[in-house]
Simulated assay, not measured.
Amino acid sequence: MSNLEILELDPADGDLVSGAFEVLRASHAADHPDNPAPHEGKFAKGLIHPTPGEEEHTFIAVKDGTVVGIAEIGLPMRENLHFGWASIHVRPDRRRQGAGAALLDHFIAFTRGRGRTELTLDTLMTWEDGVARDKAGQEFLEKRGFKLALTSINRRCAVDALDADTEQRLLEKAQSAAGDDYEIVSWLGRTPEELVETMARIDSTILAEVPLGDLDLQPETIDAELKNAKADRNEAMGVIPIQTVARHRASGEVVANTAVFAYDDTEYEDAFQGITIVDKEHRGHRLGLLLKLVNLRLVRENFPQVRAIWTDNADVNAPMIDINVMLGYEIVDAMGEYQIKFAE
């Protein structure tokens, strides 16, 4: 592809940032319009405020002054220093002209130059009776030596999927199973200062608990400083966590946690379910279901514009999938995380 340049995106270059976002917008419209649209404000602000604990880079493919492709790259900087990930998109009208291959080559060279030996890229997949997705992304990665390492099922739930009586009955059953040993605490936005330490502890268990397929990832150590830095980033990007936790009365520790993330944008109708986790010693009390139901009501009360909540779960995560199906989540498609490994 002649005249093709690969450039690192400067967050201060408004025209190129707009061009890069247009690639994401057009790719979404062509490939998966049923899924939540990319949010321009979050994208632009995310370039200025990278994820704490990660080195992030965005590269663009430019031909004749037009942005035709984008590669968003992340490198963990605290743990998992062998790992690197990317997401690559090419404008639908500029595909099969070399931009995707050039961005992939750049991703590999860039991350290998920083000592990374395990790299992943994601691509859409069809799942069961969900929406049919083009296999071009899978075939492209497989041809380049990548292998499927983890499949996550993407589900959507209307905020009013359950009728009021069913929702109340499920809530009361979960409250009964939880008993009096737990205090249920909810908030919007930043974690209250008195809960930061205990929340950092439970956040540090996430990668040890969620299914990771063939990915070789070690648990992250989240401390109060990192947790507060992530809260700063959310505030800067207009991302608002809606969070509900169960605090064990006897120990004072948070032992279960769920969060939904919405945007500070009254026009945006989608919100995103984050990880729901329950400490091993406190499972069997329906805490996961209880927290998700309480949190669902918070979303409806505080974000009337939100019509749907989206979640993804590893295809083997049966307990969480069962809860989501009970709440009314329906399959849309899946995301395949493809991996390639290099010798050290």
Rank of each mutant, 00 (worst) to 15 (best):
H89S: 09
G145P: 02
G328Q: 09
D279S: 10
P76F: 02
T123W: 01
L104W: 03
R297L: 06
L81V: 07
E56C: 13
I60N: 02
G252Y: 07
L24N: 13
L212I: 10
E139V: 11
V299S: 06
Q305E: 13
E54R: 05
D180H: 12
N80Q: 11
H248F: 03
A236G: 08
Q273L: 09
D93G: 05
N302H: 15
G238V: 07
L171P: 09
Y263I: 00
L289P: 00
A246K: 00
M77T: 11
D13C: 11
E55W: 04
Y263P: 02
G69Q: 05
D34L: 06
E5G: 12
K227M: 15
R190K: 13
L287W: 00
M199W: 06
W127K: 05
A318Q: 10
L170K: 10
F83V: 06
V254R: 00
L212M: 15
V67N: 08
D64C: 03
V278P: 01
F303N: 00
G46H: 08
Q97H: 13
D333S: 13
I309D: 00
A61P: 08
H248P: 03
A99N: 08
F83D: 01
Q97D: 10
K135M: 11
R155H: 10
T66I: 13
P36W: 01
V255T: 03
E54I: 01
